[in-house]
Design a protein around this nucleic acid. Structure first.
Lengths: 178, 178
DNA sequence: CTTGCTCCTCTAGCGACCAGAGCATCTAGG
DNA sequence: CCTAGATGCTCTGGTCGCTAGAGGAGCAAG
């Protein structure tokens, strides 16, 4: 017998899927699924005799959960917490509420920062006379080491970290930034 | 003579700085300055006899330019282009205009995406009854594999790449995300 | 001469994956 | 039964823009 569910007993689980089908079903790419297993977001999976992973409906739900959470910009650690909370439905949801609220605050300050960015970029582009570089507002603005909207001090702390990517991929073919 | 500018001749350059002082003056951190040299954003610098880098006013301007461009979210390749444009003031500024406009478009679609995010997070948090996890709107929303605002298909292409960090660091002590 | 600071190079790591090599396994058709 | 092609496996290394730390050398003041 080469399948997990016996051939004579009625299937207890409605057909576990191999990783490729699980990827198509969940919208999470194959290497990413394996990555989630590696870092422990997904459990160690049951395998076929040929060592291939099998994904049950429960696993697919978990993948969809992770995917949705990633789309909302939660980082892996937050998702780890949210998943353990999900597994214990009798607990208080204060923790998950806090995680979501924190993310909301993050997103809002990020929007505010981006709006300031937008304004300065707009000014740069509007001011460009489409002549040559010597009078270009874009280059001039960048060269100007006077103040601008955001880095009014010497860049002390805008509350902006280096690795903050707001919205993750799931975009498949896009590799270039944004 | 241990300094580049002679002691009897009048200084042709108003005192080049060592890297630490250059970092303080430009707001770019020491390892980051070295990194910029390594990747060719900064030129190979003149050194003292003791092999220490020396930064002239021109170098400091270049660092400030890079810093400001990074604050506006331009990536290294864009900055490389902008710098070569700056070095040739007689050229057309069409290229720099295009780079800035592209960035502006990026920022705007990013803001739009974040606003959708904000809305869904808000709904999640508002819906949380602060009871236990079983009825928690946060967990429920994440678990729900039906549609939400953004991933209405199966996450084909939101125009959102994986490595898109909008606003870089210069924040010094912050290492955690955002 | 020593202390303590700055500087040097080099290597490794972050987050959240993606790409590809080299091999094994499965499945459909002949 | 055999084979071709799709799919799976593990492992290594790359992405971006830095940051951290080791281990050593230079340098200015006391």
């Amino acid at each position: 017998m080469s399948r997990l569910s016996s051939d004579f007993l009625p299937d207890p689980v409605p057909d576990p899927l191999p990783i490729g089908a699980a990827a198509r079903a969940s919208g999470v790419k194959v290497p990413t699924i394996r990555f989630y297993e590696e870092i422990g977001l997904m459990p160690a999976l049951p395998r076929t005799e040929g060592n291939r992973r099998l994904y049950s409906a429960t696993h697919l739900q978990r993948l969809a959960f992770i995917r949705h959470a990633r789309e909302l910009g939660f980082d892996i650690e937050a998702i780890r917490t949210l998943l353990t909370l999900q597994d214990r439905p009798e607990q208080s949801c204060a923790a998950s509420d806090e995680i979501a609220s924190a993310r909301l605050i993050e997103v809002r300050s990020r929007i505010a920062a981006l709006r300031a960015l937008e304004a300065e970029l707009q000014r740069m582009v509007d001011g460009c006379a489409h002549g040559h570089v010597a009078q270009c507002r874009v280059i001039e603005t960048l060269s100007d080491h006077g103040q601008c909207q955001f880095h009014n001090g010497q860049g002390e702390n805008l509350g902006i970290g280096r690795n903050s990517s707001d919205l993750p991929s799931f975009s498949g073919t896009m590799t270039q930034r944004f």
